[in-house]
Design a protein around this nucleic acid. Sequence first.
DNA 1: CAAGAGCAGTACATACGTGTACGGCAAAGG
DNA 2: CCTTTGCCGTACACGTATGTACTGCTCTTG
Lengths: 208, 208
Amino acid sequence: MTGEGPEDRRREIEAAAFELLAEKGYRSTSMLQIAKRAAASNQTLYAWYGNKQTLFQSLIEENAKAVKALLRDAVAGQTDEIEALRSLGPLLLTFTTGEKAIIMNRAAIADASETGILGTAIDTTARQEMIAMINEIMTQLVVSGRFVEGTEPSVAAETYISLLFGEVPLQQAMGRLAPLDVATIADRSERALALTLQLFGNHQAKHD
Amino acid sequence: MTGEGPEDRRREIEAAAFELLAEKGYRSTSMLQIAKRAAASNQTLYAWYGNKQTLFQSLIEENAKAVKALLRDAVAGQTDEIEALRSLGPLLLTFTTGEKAIIMNRAAIADASETGILGTAIDTTARQEMIAMINEIMTQLVVSGRFVEGTEPSVAAETYISLLFGEVPLQQAMGRLAPLDVATIADRSERALALTLQLFGNHQAKHD
DNA sequence: CAAGAGCAGTACATACGTGTACGGCAAAGG
DNA sequence: CCTTTGCCGTACACGTATGTACTGCTCTTG
């Protein structure tokens, strides 16, 4: 283990790194600036992280860990799958279109032409987990007969995600859209859920 | 007018710029490299474009102009709105998720933390036009009674676009997804259309 | 054919990035 | 209490970006 004192110091350094990332973007944020902001030495940064990509990879992983915990908590309490989706939707939207996500998405995309490490990190630590969660819920909905027979859970999941997020993350990455406010998040979540149910819900069953 | 000789030269320079953009990404592509690749002088680049952003802005505008022409042609021949959508979908997908689009989206996102000029250029020269076209079609579908009464054309348009593109452009920008092949493009287009019709189509009218 | 405009090629001033090296201070441990 | 470890602060070597300046060739034009 890396120890407990260093643990705090790491957090401070990563906080400084994120601040600068938010202020100036990935490419314009330098290791020296991060070191200065955190009152650390660049030597320390290179000793601990090796290079810039790895440092920001740590940022992404740390963030994903926190988000995943919150998402799991949200579904853990729900026995009804549709209710699970109803509480999951706004959470997913909050995280995926929040300021932190915008900034990290931008960083990953800036890095795509260089190493691709950050994109991989977001994919494996956040996106795949998210999709797995939704797939699981959709599978349950098909199995329990609440979705029409023959519905492919992965198709339902992809449809729901498309409707939930739409073009928002891309527009945000391009700087054409600010983080969504709570009302918009609620609206989008409800609409995505309503449309998904309309498409895949078993309406016959309702009237039995 | 800027002349006819210079017109060709501009295209050569912009072609060199795009090549380098594709090879190294936006931030790592320098004006000097572009000049060398095009066998031009950096002085010429600065004289003609002023700076890097404006040069790439020209690239985006030129591309958007060509794409727009093709899209208009595709809908121009169609009298039936659903057929218009059926031919528009694959085209939209081809352009929006093609290699050129991936590269330009990445550039615009890299520039989002700097000037935002490229994002604005994509938005106003391509995206808004595309949305306007689809909105128009959706409006016709509502007016003609092929969509259920009360359907908000803009909602239908946004839904269709979400289903058509989904997470694809973002994943591509992050380097997690290659350009779609024709089969996938056909599949996605059909599915997006089918789902949109299922959601908003007036099924009563069909049986009259 | 001579004069001029335009542009390629190069050099330059300035600034900043990455990754490494070294001196000095402070806290931990024998 | 002295040594050793660890880290801050700064300096350094090297590479490369932007935007400007200058020289000489070439092609056009009177």
